[in-house]
Design a binder for these strands. Sequence first.
RNA 1: GGUCCCUUCGUCUAUCGGUUAGGACACAUGGUUUUCAUCCAUGAAAGAGGGGUUCGAUUCCCCUAGGGACCGCCA
Length: 465
Amino acid sequence: MSKVATRFAPSPTGPLHIGGLRTALFNWLYSKNKGGKFYLRIEDTDKERSKEEHKQQIIKSLTWIGIEHDGDEYIQSKKIEDHVNIALELLKKGKAYKCYCTPEEIEEQKKRAKQKKIPYIYNRKWRDAGETEAPKYIKPVIRFKSKIDGSAILKDLVQGDIEIENNTIEDFIILRNDGTPTYNLSASVDDHLMNMTHIIRGDDHKINTFKQIQIYEALNWNIPKFAHIPLIHTIDGKKLSKRDNASTLDDYSKIGILPEALRNYLLRLGWSFEDKEIFSLKESIKYFNLQGIGKSPSKLDMSRILSMNEHYIKNIKEDELFIKLKEYCELFKEKIDLKKEEKIKQSLSFLKNKAKTLEDIYKNSKYIILNEVSFNKEDLKLIDNKSKKIIIDFVNKISNLDTLSKDNLEPIINELIKVNETNFKGVGQPLRIGLTGSKFGPGIYDIILSLDKDDIVKRLTKVGH
RNA sequence: GGUCCCUUCGUCUAUCGGUUAGGACACAUGGUUUUCAUCCAUGAAAGAGGGGUUCGAUUCCCCUAGGGACCGCCA
């Protein structure tokens, strides 16, 4: 058997959404698991809607999540001539025919069928008609001569055997009257030209597969194996589309979802391997198989994406996390000042415990990143006169320390607690609010040690008066 | 309307005829803790319904119901 070859074939008519991303992932994982190849084909034959920027976004998205395609991108529009030639060959072989029906005529038939509530199927008017009857002024389309009798069985690698009556598949158009090929023709020809062994794609292509198999058969081509994966549904159970919010990659990267987390989430959405939840990239390649793909559609669950992300944030190396945070802030928030980098890096050990996303880390480290404290007004009210006195006492006590450490801070705080007849909270909370602007945040020692002494004095003096 | 597909906790899923139906997320409660979190422990939570087949069905078959996809001179 030839080496496994799969492909992902998006059309650049919009940004890639995560359903497509998962399809790409499954194709890629399958080929890598089998030691095969994975290709990217850009189906850009819809001139009106295809955009270069979308193509770039698709490639960027794949790269972001860690999918690399083998070889160059296969650009479908460059192969149109091949597709047309195959259409002509089918015509010559009598496997296809010219149809002189006008779009209006077809439209009319559909309308009538709908009114009568009978299923519409093209009436095959020109299937056996002679050329001599052809109206000269109409440019014909070329239709494929689909099988009329019997039934076909698709041995789907995910769905099992699917049987369908051949007469429910109409004589579909393979060449438009402007001479351009249509999807089912182009896809079949390209998959053949690219020597695809396995076509893994969304459930929504099932009927196309029956059409495409007939094209393969008409040309005596090897038929690849097919696996139709269930679609991803929105929370209200509908097919995910580009227009749904939180569907494109940007929606996730901008809130600070890590690519490995999204990859892991997508892998487990509709696929499973025993009770295993966390898969490293290597493991996902090692364990991926088609048997593990479920048959029913699955819904997108944001809280799971977040918790997966939380897991990766807590478990990747802090150096790596810092690089990701730095890139994230520069891209979506503000650039981290070089002078602050070291402080943030050191603080990551406690910051990451409070975060599900990079955005959370950013928010929690804002008091380090920004020079000015932005106060929560409600929290600021908690600083009463007694608190102010504690704050000033604290400032006075640390002002003659050279360096701050937990060892030399602890006695000071304990003394303040005693002198003011309060508890840890009575001292910690005013300091936290004064330094970060919020009563929520890291432990007070962590906060103090993540700031410069001058800065601490400045901030506390300001709120203490 | 036609064709095809799907149906286990709220969600993602395990189970390949015999299980107290398991795990994860989310949720609830308790503990740790200077706040918020983290962390730990515990808990609640499911086989759509009805028929068969079988000693025994979540698992196999049929019907019903519900949901979905497709039905373009888009891809």
